[in-house]
Structure formats: C-alpha cells, structure tokens
C-alpha cells in the first residue's frame, strides 16, 4: 500500500517535471561528463566539486564580506572566457571593479555587464518601491532576460550587498523559475550572496569563509598579502560535500609601493 502511494507521488512529480527532487531520478554520483560542468579553475576547489559547478543548474557562492566570493566568481568567468564562452554579470548594486576583472583574466569583450544602480550612498528604510526593492526587481528581470536569451556559459547575479531584509522579500519561487529557465541548457547560473538563498535541487552551494593575511611587522612595511579562503561545498543530499582551502594573493593593479610617512 505504501509502495502504491509512493509510486503515485513519484508519478505526480514526474508529470509536473519535478522528478529531479526524487532520489531515484538524481543523476549518478560520478559526474564524468566534463562538458556538463563549469570548472572554477581553482584546483583544490574543482577537486572538491568533482569538476566544477553543473551547467543547467543554479549554484551559489555564499559568504560574508572578504570571504573571496567575488574573486572566485571572477576566476570562474576568466576561465570561461578563455575557453571562448561568453559570460554575463547582473550587477544589482553596481559593484564590479573593472580593473579587478581584467586582472583576474576575464576577457572583457566577452563579458556582458548589466549594471544596476549603486544605492549604497543613500539612506532610507526598506519598503515597497524603495530603491533597493526596485534594484532587486530590475536585476531579477535582467537575469531572466539573459537566461532566456541563452548561449552564455556563466550567468551570475550579485546579491551580496543587498540587505537581508530585502533578500527575505524575494519570493522563493523566483529561484525555482530561474531553475526552470536554465534546465537542460549549457548555462551555469551562479548566485552571489551572503547566505544561502536558492537551495537548488541540482545546483551546489559553496560556502566561503575568508581571513585576510598580512605581511610585514612594522607599520611602514605592513601590507595586505592575500585572503585565505576556506570553502565548504554543500550539495543536495550531501552527495558532493567537502572542504577546500584556497589562497588568494593581492596583486596591485595600481602603482602602489611603500606607504608614505604618516603625519602624527
């Protein structure tokens, strides 16, 4: 009797194309097809991810400020553009530093940058039709347009600096709709956020924690040398879970030398 009920549920889910949530319908554990993955181009992380983030799914790079999420995203985009793919970045609050993207190796001519409005300098409560809500709404619409156009290897949306209260206003079915749009396509959609949002059944969540590293003992010689990133991969039903440690160094794109003498 129980089996009949289970079969009925599974059948109903398949009818609604929701069978990816079934344990039996999940793809095999060994992900051997490299064309179905987008490597991050970071060896320890790719080893942990068993090849990279899956195409046709919504994955997440989440972490607090200075956890290395933007660096890893740019690294992933650089690898994609070096393979001849085109990438898109929906920049909700207009945070992309073009020099950093170029320094990461992103082929800028193959990057579609959709710039939202920088509202960080404006004070004001969050509420209906607030600048933040409008920015999120536009960014989600832009994401939908880019995904529907197709042909992009990586499409990322940046919600990292959006206040949590605004994030909570986004309906959860937003991410289901995104998942439905890219299902079966060659696009890997990446969500950059401060905490897990999408909880996709097929995508991966990479949780990042970073610690800045400094060199130099004296005030005059001290400088930021990089960020040690600890990544934790969380996947549906713990199939690809694991940890990785990644080091990111600082490479100045300006002509910084030693600091000037401080006035006391």
């Amino acid at each position: 009797m129980a089996n009949h009920a289970l079969a009925a549920v599974e059948s109903a889910l398949r009818d609604r194309k929701l069978d990816r949530t079934l344990t039996t319908a999940l793809a095999p554990l060994e992900r051997v097809d490299p064309s179905a993955l987008v490597p991050m181009d970071v060896a320890p992380l790719d080893a942990c991810l068993r090849g990279g983030l899956p195409r046709g799914h919504l994955s997440e790079l989440v972490g607090a400020r200075s956890s290395g999420r933007m660096t890893l995203l740019l690294q992933m985009m650089a690898a994609a553009t070096s393979r001849g793919e085109i990438v898109a970045f929906v920049d909700t609050l207009d945070r992309l530093d073009v020099a950093s993207a170029a320094a990461a190796g992103v082929d800028l001519s193959r990057l579609l940058w959709v710039r939202g409005q920088d509202i960080s300098g404006r004070a004001g409560p969050f509420g209906p039709a607030s600048p933040t809500e409008r920015a999120i709404d536009r960014a989600l619409k832009a994401l939908n347009l880019v995904l529907q156009a197709g042909g992009f290897g990586v499409v990322a949306i940046d919600l990292a600096d959006v206040p949590p209260v605004a994030i909570r206003q986004i309906p959860f079915n937003t991410w289901m709709r995104v998942q439905r749009v890219i299902e079966g396509s060659d696009t890997a959609c990446v969500l950059l956020a401060s905490e897990p949002l999408a909880r996709s059944a097929g995508g991966l969540t990479v949780t990042l924690a970073g610690r800045a590293t400094w060199v130099g003992t004296s005030d005059r010689s001290r400088r930021l040398s990089g960020i040690d990133v600890r990544a934790r991969v969380v996947s549906p039903r713990k199939r690809i879970d694991g940890d990785a440690k990644v080091g990111i160094v600082v490479t100045e794109v300006t002509d910084r030398d030693l600091p000037i003498a401080r006035a006391r």
């Binding site: 945070r95 990461a104 930021l224 990111i248 490479t251």
Partner: peptide, 12 residues
C-alpha cells in the same frame, strides 16, 4: 594561475 583579490567597488 595566481588569483588576485578582487575589489568590490562602491561607485559612490
């Protein structure tokens, strides 16, 4: 590939 720390820039 040496990763370089990216800056998230406040346009304003």
């Amino acid at each position: 590939v040496d990763m370089t720390v990216a800056l998230r820039r406040f346009r304003h």
